[in-house]
Design a binder for these strands. Structure first.
Length: 280
DNA sequence: TGCCAGGAGTTAG
DNA sequence: CTAACTCATGGC
């Protein structure tokens, strides 16, 4: 099926290429990716987001995935009081935080540890091809991200063979807990930010940064502020005149400064620090 | 060759 | 609490 959603304050490229999701590829003027059990083709012409899927797709769910229900101007008003964030917003206007599948997001960011985006994409693609379901859209095909149960039962050697390295043990352990309901991902919804983060961090391979990414990208916890080396350096440079600060300090500082939408500020700052500062 | 990549766990002090 | 070491590999 195919449908269009009228959207303002949106930029598909910035949204899909800012490092929050690992399953989208650009081909010409559109992107292809996987949302849940659907292979999706998405294009944006500046006014409408046009989406085509091989299966029946819930329009409302797709809109929610792309973060279209958030009032971006209001968020800009709140975090744009900061001059650095304001510049980043100007440059990356329309970047929205996605609302991704929780298990896929958790697994993906466990895999993100100490590696780079091309490799993360490769690991996820490999896992999906090996353990996921084949999806079709026209002449294209792709694979769904495997449910926890499939990875829980996987041979650790196979996982390592897919390039996961030391992450293989982490993701298998977490997959087992999620599949057996020993760890109830959806139950985190009922916890406050701090409690949910602590609970996530009880999983092997999940530290502060990964927990914040999961809460931000799949739970709509916009106060989460993931701190990686880039953000840490950037915060130190922009707000502490270059003096080294502990990652914890950087996160606390950010939540205090940017408030309930610190995570949105993080995405803009991150993109800005890595790609666009010199040209701004 | 060397170095880095959106970290986390463990141990030592 | 911080610092240092380990894990482990593709890409440039």
């Amino acid at each position: 099926m195919k449908f269009s959603l009228p959207v303002s304050d949106f930029n598909l490229e910035h949204t899909l290429e800012c490092g929050q999701a690992f399953r989208w590829e650009r081909s010409g003027d559109f992107y292809t990716g996987v949302i849940g059990e659907s292979l999706v083709k998405a294009a944006f012409d500046g006014r409408e987001l046009t989406v085509e899927t091989g299966s029946r797709a819930d329009k409302e769910k797709i809109a929610d995935y792309f973060g279209l229900n958030e009032d971006l101007p209001r968020i800009y008003k709140e975090i744009g009081t900061d001059p650095h964030v304001k510049k980043a917003i100007k440059k990356y206007h329309g970047l929205r935080i996605l609302n991704q599948d929780r298990w896929e997001c958790l697994a993906s960011f466990i895999l993100s540890s100490y590696t780079n985006i091309p490799r993360i994409k490769k690991m996820i693609a490999g896992l999906s091809k090996k353990f996921g379901k084949r999806l079709v859209l026209g002449r294209m095909d792709a694979y769904s991200f495997p449910p926890a149960g499939r990875i829980a039962g996987a041979d650790i050697k196979i996982l390592k063979g897919l390039g996961l390295g030391f992450r293989a043990a982490y993701i298998k352990d977490t997959a087992r807990k999620v599949a057996s309901k020993k760890f109830d991902l959806d139950a985190l919804e009922d916890l406050n930010y701090k409690e949910a983060k602590e609970r996530l961090m009880s999983l092997k391979g999940v530290g502060e940064k990964v927990a914040d990414c999961v809460l931000l990208f799949s739970f709509k916890r916009y106060e989460a502020f993931p701190v990686d080396v880039w953000i840490k350096r950037g915060i130190e440079e922009l707000y502490f005149s270059g003096k080294a600060a502990a990652p914890k300090k950087a996160a606390e500082f950010a939540r205090e400064r940017f408030g309930a939408y610190a995570g949105y500020a993080q995405e803009y700052l991150y993109h800005y620090l890595r790609h666009g500062r010199e040209k701004a």
